[in-house]
Amino acid sequence: MDRLKRVGWGRVATVTVVAVCVGYAPIAMTELWPYARPGAPAFGEWLLGKAVSPRYVADALATRIGPYGRSLVPLILHSVLGGALMLLGPVQLSSAVRRRVRLHRAVGVVYALTVYASMAGAAVYLARTAPRDAFDGESFWLVLATILVGTTLSVTFGVLAALGRLPDLHQRWMLLCYGYLMTAPLLRLEWGALPWILPDGLPMEDVNRVAIMHLGSVVVFGALLASRAMDRRDALPQQGGTWAAWPVLAVAHVAGAAALVWIGRSFLDFGAEGRRLLVAFLLPYAATYSVMAVRQRVAGRRGRPWAREEWRLHLTALCLAPVFSVAATLCFERYMHLDGLTALSAGVGIGCGVLAFAATTAVSLRVLYAREVARRQAMGGGSEASAAAPDLAHI
């Protein structure tokens, strides 16, 4: 029964993601047509106007004519190729394609090249646009820049893992890359859904600020869930001890709790808007934490040490995400001279995404270390590897 439930939820999640991606692809590809040719159809604007109001959309996009006009060609390249990636991702992840190795590799090459070209267009736009001129200002510019770097590095590590014949690591990095890309369609969905929840009359800039409080944690958590669903191993060969022992988890929890208190008190200093942003961050964060904490414990009880290890590494990173956010906020205030709320929004907006990248890196190193131990034992160096294992087991 439990297995049937897991399969059922997995299929529902897969169908939902595919539907969102396929539905968003034409929206992404036509999003910038009106800036190149006034009056050209833009399906996304039309749908958003129907979901909220035409004035809500018009007021937000009226300020984009100048910044977009200075980088229109790179932005069109970015959006059109971004729409193509929304279609290539589900194709590449489908079991039918993955079973055909040559086809999977060919589509993978196209996918990676498309990511690089699309991110290059985004990089040109960000380089030509002052942070204050970005939609929603400096906080959103910083979030976009972080997503760009994370997406590019993730696909690069995914390619390197494939070349190194490490399919499990390749799979994790490509899922994380696609998770970062999913921020685009999910943000558009929140532009249409949040005005029904938030107070009437909020402009899209304010709605956008609420959305970026949790989109990073949502997409990377989705990538983790997909990775765990596709990895059925109970243990790694020569896995050894854990890299996230209870003392490590305890320190991460204490540091994370202190950082969360700092973030909460800082947001509350900004009145109703601060409270709104704090709730938008805390609710998804708490849900993500609860799932990770429960899953690592369940995996331990079921005798699945590798699943438990991966959950614990990501749980540790999640606890440390607020610490990173506090440090980033202070840096943005000091070195970019941002006001308190803008710096705080940017720091919180990128925290979970950056630490998920760090957690995936730790998981990759964990896999590589276990394989190296197994390789040395196979070559007759078992005693040396066993002696080294305790030193690294509690990192």
Score class of each variant (00 low, 15 high):
residue 367 V to Q: 09
residue 289 Y to W: 15
residue 128 R to D: 12
residue 227 S to C: 14
residue 268 L to H: 14
residue 82 G to L: 01
residue 113 L to Q: 05
residue 299 A to R: 02
residue 30 T to W: 03
residue 110 V to L: 15
residue 22 V to P: 04
residue 357 F to Y: 05
residue 342 T to V: 05
residue 118 S to F: 09
residue 226 A to N: 07
residue 223 A to I: 00
residue 301 R to I: 02
residue 352 C to W: 04
residue 97 V to W: 01
residue 24 Y to G: 08
residue 101 V to D: 15
residue 64 R to W: 12
residue 90 P to I: 08
residue 160 L to N: 07
residue 382 G to I: 00
residue 57 V to M: 12
residue 300 G to Y: 03
residue 233 R to T: 14
residue 13 A to C: 10
residue 144 L to V: 14
residue 338 L to E: 10
residue 4 L to A: 15
residue 294 V to E: 14
residue 307 A to N: 12
residue 193 A to N: 11
residue 128 R to G: 05
residue 93 L to M: 04
residue 125 Y to M: 13
residue 111 Y to Q: 12
residue 51 A to V: 03
residue 210 V to P: 14
residue 395 I to H: 14
residue 53 S to I: 10
residue 53 S to R: 05
residue 155 V to N: 02
residue 250 A to G: 07
residue 202 L to I: 01
residue 275 R to S: 15
residue 354 V to G: 09
residue 174 M to V: 11
residue 316 T to S: 12
residue 56 Y to D: 13
residue 210 V to F: 08
residue 349 G to M: 00
residue 56 Y to V: 04
residue 215 L to Q: 03
residue 64 R to Q: 15
residue 192 G to T: 13
residue 44 G to L: 11
residue 117 A to T: 07
residue 124 V to A: 10
residue 199 P to A: 00
residue 201 G to W: 04
residue 331 C to R: 09
residue 362 A to H: 09
residue 73 V to R: 09
residue 124 V to M: 06
residue 240 G to V: 00
residue 71 S to E: 02
residue 282 L to S: 05
residue 70 R to S: 12
residue 81 L to P: 11
residue 192 G to W: 15
residue 208 N to D: 10
residue 22 V to I: 06
residue 159 V to M: 13
residue 80 V to F: 09
residue 392 L to A: 02
residue 102 R to C: 02
residue 279 V to Q: 12
residue 339 D to H: 07
residue 53 S to F: 02
residue 6 R to M: 01
residue 72 L to E: 03
residue 3 R to L: 10
residue 191 W to G: 06
residue 322 P to E: 04
residue 355 L to H: 06
residue 210 V to M: 08
residue 389 A to R: 02
residue 315 L to P: 05
residue 9 W to Q: 14
residue 8 G to F: 15
residue 308 R to H: 06
residue 343 A to Y: 00
residue 41 P to I: 00
residue 89 G to V: 05
residue 183 T to R: 00
residue 314 H to S: 14
residue 12 V to M: 05
residue 42 A to G: 13
residue 346 A to Q: 04
residue 158 G to H: 03
residue 327 A to G: 08
residue 160 L to M: 12
residue 223 A to Y: 00
residue 9 W to N: 12
residue 197 I to M: 11
residue 188 R to H: 11
residue 3 R to H: 05
residue 36 A to T: 00
residue 87 L to H: 08
residue 215 L to T: 04
residue 297 R to A: 15
residue 5 K to L: 10
residue 213 M to G: 07
residue 39 G to K: 08
residue 81 L to V: 09
residue 124 V to N: 03
residue 147 I to P: 08
residue 174 M to A: 07
residue 94 S to F: 00
residue 243 W to A: 13
residue 273 E to G: 08
residue 78 H to I: 08
residue 315 L to Y: 06
